[in-house]
Each structure stands twice: as C-alpha cells, then as structure tokens.
Amino acid sequence: MINSDLQSNWKDSIYRQREELARMLREPIERVAELLHAVWPDKQQMEDVLLHGFSSIPYCTSLYVLDMNAVQLTENIGHAGVVTGHYNRDRSQRPYMREPVPSWGFLLSDAYISLVAHRPSLTALKTIRRGDSVLGYLGADFDLRDLPVTSQLYKEPELWRQIKGDPAIRSGLFLQTRVESPMDRNMDQTLSILEEMLTERGVFQTQIHFSSSQATIWMNDDPYRYRILDIDALKDPDICLVYPRQPYPAEAVIPANQIATILDNFKILRAGDPNIYLRLATINLYNGMVSLTFSCDGSHYMPYDEFLLKNLTFWFGDIAA
C-alpha cells in the first residue's frame, strides 16, 4: 500500500506540469482548428491547413483530423510534411479517444505509450465546430522527450510507507526459518565497519543484504557508481584503508552519532524472530530515511528518528514477548 501523501505529492507535480503544457499548447492548436471548419471535409484542403499551421504548434510531432467516430480524415502532417498511410485510420481504441473532451472543447490527454515508437507520448484534441455542430477533432501528438519540464521535481516525502511484497512469499512465511548467513556469524564486526564507512569514509548510502552477506555502497565523491562489498571485505577492517577519511557531510539529515544505533536495531530485527526477520536494509544520510525488507517480502520506508522509536512489539507483535 502506497501512502496517499506520496501519491498527492507526485500527482500534484504532474498536475502542475500538465497545466503549464495546456496553457502553452491550447491557443496555437485552437487557431489551426478554427480554420478547418471552412474547408470541411475536403481532405486536400484540410491537409493544406495542417501543413501551414504545423510549425505554429511547439513540440508537435504530428497533426491530423478525425471525424466523430475517431476515423482519420487526413494523412498525418509532421516535420517532413505529409506522412502517408494514416488516412482512414481508426483511432477509436487509442487511450486519448477514451477520455472525455471537456465542454470547452480542448483535451490534453494523459500520457500513454505510442504504437510506433513505443515511447511515452500525449495527445491534444480540439473539437472542430461549425456553429453549434461538432464536426470532428483536430489531433496533435507529442513525444514526452520533446516537451519541456516546467515543474520542479517532487520531493520524496519524509514519512513512513509500507509496501506489501510477493503474496507467494507471504503465504509461505511460517514454512521457512532464518538460516544463519556468514554475515550473521560476523555481525558485530560487519556493522562496525559499515559504521566507519558511513561516518568517516564518505559513504552516504548503503544497502545491506543480510541473507546474502553483502553490502552495496555509494560514495560522496563518486555518487553515480555503486560498489559491492562481499563478506570477505565486510569482516576485514583493512577495507577502510581503501577509502580515504572524509568529513561527515553537513547536509546529512541523520546525525553521525545515530548511525551505530540504527545499525544495532538492524541487528535486533535480523535475529528477533526465526520466521519474520530482516533480509535487507538501507540507510541514506541525505534524505534521512531507512528502508527495511523482511522475510515476508514486505518493505518499510521511514525517517530514521521514527525508526528508532519503534520497539520489537511494533515489528513482531505479541511474538516479541
């Protein structure tokens, strides 16, 4: 289950982007549509209107005219001019034709995957009117790669989220028990080394795979590449010699003195119950979040301080007693 606050966050960002795109595209599309009713339904004359008006619509990849049944009355008009093979094409089953056109006669569709390029795209539809009668639609297609992004990237919300995993794994949860891994046998040594890496050696994110005895790390001075530390590295303090000492980042949300406590809590959740146990955990210093994936395949994402407030009863219920 994805928290509704997260949905509103990224959906609000999409809404603002679509509002700006509609504001940018509506007027030039309407100007072309207003010229079509006078030459309706002559194919050649409508294509001439589209050819003349194509360059006035920013970022457009193709223009075409549809009748009320979404059957195409013209060829496609694109950057290279007339693109044949589309006349009489039935677009009635395309996603944008299933959305209701608002009463004001202009629709900017939801994004969809295009048939030819298989890329995220969207379509604008403008009703073509003669008096009070609706004749058809002017369609304008856009490749999302070409459209400008006008809204800011949404911020990942700093709140607890729980996401359910594979039902097949959950259904067999009590048929399995934790098997001790090499990391389990070297847990204290491993967590001490990871604490050193996070607080003194420039690691800003680590993903700890308890069951497979490895950790993936991301470095401040090389953030686009990850590095994998196997159990041989994780139990050998000499690994710290490979990574020069660096100041703890001032932008980090998690205080350096809380890293050891977080790792200790991971250890407790790993060994707290033979059936429900921690398989994977992540710490990110900059967004202040930890993530946890358990043997039931369920995942939790939460701020580090909220995580530290949770006791065993929260995670394991009455089993913790």
Results as ranks from 00 to 15, higher is better:
114 S>I: 02
115 L>C: 07
115 L>P: 09
118 H>F: 06
118 H>E: 13
120 P>R: 04
120 P>V: 06
121 S>R: 05
123 T>S: 10
124 A>I: 04
126 K>T: 05
128 I>Y: 01
129 R>C: 14
131 G>C: 08
131 G>P: 04
132 D>L: 13
132 D>Y: 06
133 S>Y: 08
136 G>Q: 03
137 Y>V: 09
139 G>Q: 06
141 D>T: 10
141 D>E: 13
142 F>Q: 07
143 D>C: 10
145 R>M: 13
145 R>A: 15
146 D>P: 00
146 D>F: 11
147 L>D: 04
148 P>K: 15
150 T>G: 05
150 T>S: 13
151 S>L: 05
151 S>A: 15
153 L>D: 11
156 E>R: 15
157 P>F: 12
158 E>I: 15
159 L>K: 13
160 W>M: 15
163 I>P: 05
163 I>A: 10
164 K>I: 09
165 G>Q: 03
166 D>T: 04
168 A>I: 12
168 A>W: 00
168 A>R: 10
169 I>C: 00
170 R>N: 02
170 R>G: 02
172 G>N: 04
175 L>Q: 06
177 T>L: 12
177 T>D: 04
179 V>R: 06
182 P>E: 02
183 M>I: 02
183 M>E: 00
184 D>H: 02
187 M>F: 03
189 Q>H: 11
189 Q>M: 14
190 T>C: 13
192 S>G: 15
194 L>T: 05
196 E>K: 12
198 L>F: 07
200 E>L: 13
202 G>P: 02
202 G>N: 02
204 F>L: 09
204 F>K: 14
205 Q>I: 05
206 T>Y: 00
207 Q>I: 14
209 H>P: 11
211 S>W: 03
212 S>L: 08
217 I>D: 04
220 N>A: 13
220 N>I: 12
220 N>V: 12
221 D>L: 12
221 D>Y: 12
222 D>C: 12
222 D>G: 12
228 I>V: 15
228 I>A: 11
231 I>F: 02
233 A>N: 05
234 L>D: 06
236 D>S: 10
237 P>N: 08
238 D>Y: 05
239 I>L: 06
239 I>R: 01
239 I>E: 01
240 C>L: 15
242 V>L: 14
242 V>N: 13
243 Y>P: 10
244 P>W: 02
247 P>H: 05
247 P>K: 08
248 Y>V: 11
249 P>M: 08
249 P>W: 03
